[in-house]
Write a protein that binds this DNA or RNA. Structure first.
Lengths: 134, 134
DNA sequence: TATTGTTATACTCTATAACTATA
DNA sequence: TATAGTTATAGAGTATAACAATA
């Protein structure tokens, strides 16, 4: 069975997913990186900017404008750690948590619609494989 | 079963595949875009630069330095179409076909190694799903 | 007038280095 | 001296617009 390289197919699928998510994010005024940050903070285990950068695989300097924006819009809190005042402790506000939940639900719904194109057994195996490989 | 968004997982897998391919490409002195071009031409159905750009989803202007380099190195031919002298007809040289074959084989081998981490049934379903979705 | 390929330019994204304030 | 975060800068990658040569 002739097929493209995995790399080519994964890249195409990535572009397709991105195109699918873009309108959802735009509708809520959230950039891709802002969503990734909200997502990273939603777990609750990440507290500092350095930890967040490591978690989402971004440079720490890339995060700063995103955090500035999210803070201005009241979606995150960013306060000096009393125990080490070099560190900023990050947390979602209620409003941030809500935006994250809404956007995430819409994205998940759109993902499900995409997976409808697969046989049910393949669908489960695909997600399982993706969890393992990623 | 809590999992990340498909987008996040696909992006991570994409980065992983890229990191895996990078040393192979470097060893043969071929950039990612150069490989994509060789791959696009290997099928034989694509003949013009515009068609190639469309096929691989790249801007036509992005292709030009890549084609210049591949031509200088004797991996592709690029000649005006006698029937329409605006058009450049592209083709792999024997040497280009050989480089493509070698690189592709190494990439496929590495991909197989990656897929070893999956149960055989999941492996097939994963590739099948990827073909469908991408 | 429209199209293929090319060049020049501007823009975006990302990484690097230098700086501050703490420790 | 080392570290968290910030700022400024430079580099890479990409897209946009203008151009030359055909049709």
């Amino acid at each position: 069975m002739a097929r493209d390289d995995l790399g080519a197919m994964v890249a195409r699928l990535g572009r397709r997913l991105l195109a699918m998510e873009q309108p959802i994010l735009a509708r809520h005024g959230v950039s891709m990186w802002a969503y990734v940050v909200l997502n990273g903070l939603a777990g609750g285990s990440v507290r500092t900017q350095a930890a967040l950068a490591a978690r989402i695989g971004a440079d720490k300097t890339r995060l700063i404008p995103v955090l500035d924006d999210l803070q201005e819009r009241g979606l995150i809190e960013r306060e000096p750690d009393p125990a080490d005042r070099r560190v900023r402790l990050l947390a979602l506000t209620d409003s941030g948590r809500e935006v994250h939940r809404v956007v995430r639900d819409e994205i998940r719904t759109a993902e499900e619609a995409l997976l409808e194109g697969l046989a049910p057994a393949d669908r489960e195996a695909f997600v399982r494989a993706l969890v393992t490989l990623s």
